[in-house]
């Protein structure tokens, strides 16, 4: 049984005023002819103030030319128009609905109202008797959604940063042993897949034990940090650097031939040896030994690493401060 017309009209008015969506109706001159409760509480402008006023007087920051164009489309074509919070988060300068349900954690939010992130829908309304076309602007509060999305993105960023951190040696900020070994495996698989060369360089700080004994572990730590930084600075973006243990580092350089790898080893050696390191008023001279291994047939990282370390051993036995290359027999 349909309700009588008068009852329907009365109910409709209540629904329109109480619904938790902003509703503004403007006439052909963009003067406001309807303003619901939601708009009152989110704009701070009362119905009495809004009715009869120009939309652009109430919202001076609304881009007038752009919005007039939208209203013109709605009126002449009698189609809906939309704005999306992803492209225009705040078409109307409003605060997020104070009556919006909020999780407990939000109660501790800083002072002051929160700007409303919103989606808008603009619909044509035609008065059948006079043919006059009005435009209804519906404003949906998307503040919560935008915040949740931003939070999700932050979380993803934080997780990525954590993963990255977890791969690093806290002292030298280069990869720790497991990470550099994993990087070597990955690079080896890639080298075989693309048939491109790959070299591994084992790098050792000469006489690190005595250095530690004479100057203490704080100074030794500084030296480790300095050498890691210097190595990093001497490497291109495709190279990976890690600390295997104590004073031994490993450099993985994709797409390098043996001759290039030897040259790189020499450069790194000179970069560290060229000037003494100044730590706590001390000037400490540091040299490096380098062992170079070029990928041959091996498909596992372990034998490659062994060859680089064996070459490093040879360099050490030859008195340190030099570079040796592993020859595959």
């Amino acid at each position: 049984m349909p309700l009588p017309k008068a009852t329907l009209e009365s109910l409709a008015k209540d629904i329109v005023d109480k619904v938790d969506v902003g509703l503004v109706v403007v006439d052909a001159e963009d003067l406001i002819v309807h303003w619901n409760d939601f708009m009152e509480r989110c704009s701070g402008t009362s119905r009495a103030q809004a009715l009869g006023a120009s939309l652009y007087a109430i919202f001076p920051e609304l881009p007038q030319g752009w919005f007039e164009q939208k209203l013109r489309a709605v009126r002449t074509l009698r189609t809906a128009a939309f704005t999306s919070w992803r492209e225009r988060p705040r078409v109307f300068s409003l605060v997020s609905d104070p009556l919006r349900p909020r999780p407990i954690e939000d109660c501790s939010e800083g002072p002051g109202p929160e700007p409303m992130v919103q989606d808008c829908v603009i619909l044509p309304l035609v008065d059948e008797s006079t043919e006059e076309v009005f435009a209804a602007i519906l404003v949906h509060d998307r503040t919560e959604l935008a915040r949740a999305e931003a939070r999700g993105q932050l979380l993803t960023q934080a997780n990525t940063a954590l993963e990255e951190l977890a791969r690093h040696d806290p002292l030298t900020r280069v990869y720790h042993r497991a990470a550099i070994e994993k990087a070597l495996e990955t690079a080896l698989a890639e080298a075989h897949r693309t048939s491109k060369p790959l070299a591994a360089l084992a790098v050792l700080i000469d006489d690190f034990g005595p250095l530690n004994d004479q100057n203490g572990c704080r100074v030794a730590d500084e030296v480790l940090r300095y050498v890691a930084q210097t190595l990093r600075a001497g490497l291109g973006p495709s190279a990976v650097l890690g600390r295997l243990e104590g004073a031994t580092f490993l450099v993985v350089v994709p797409e390098r031939r043996e001759s290039e790898a030897i040259l790189l080893g020499q450069r790194l050696r000179f970069a560290v040896a060229s000037a003494p390191i100044e730590v706590q008023d001390k000037r400490i001279k540091v040299t490096l030994s380098v062992g170079v291994a070029q990928v041959a047939a091996e498909t596992d990282a372990a034998p490659l690493l062994e060859r680089a370390l064996a070459a490093l051993g040879e360099a050490q036995r030859a008195g340190g401060n030099n570079t040796r290359v592993s020859r595959v027999r």
Binding site: P63, G65, W66, Q69, K70, A73, L77, R78, T79, A80, A81, F82, S84, E87, R88
Partner: peptide, 25 residues
């Protein structure tokens, strides 16, 4: 054609607007 300032309006926004308009009519 609509006289939008190109710096003011992103392409995807204009196209979305026109899509809605063409669909509607």
């Amino acid at each position: 054609r609509l006289g939008h300032d190109e710096t003011d309006v992103v392409e995807s926004e204009v196209l979305a607007e026109i899509a809605s308009l063409l669909t509607g009519v």
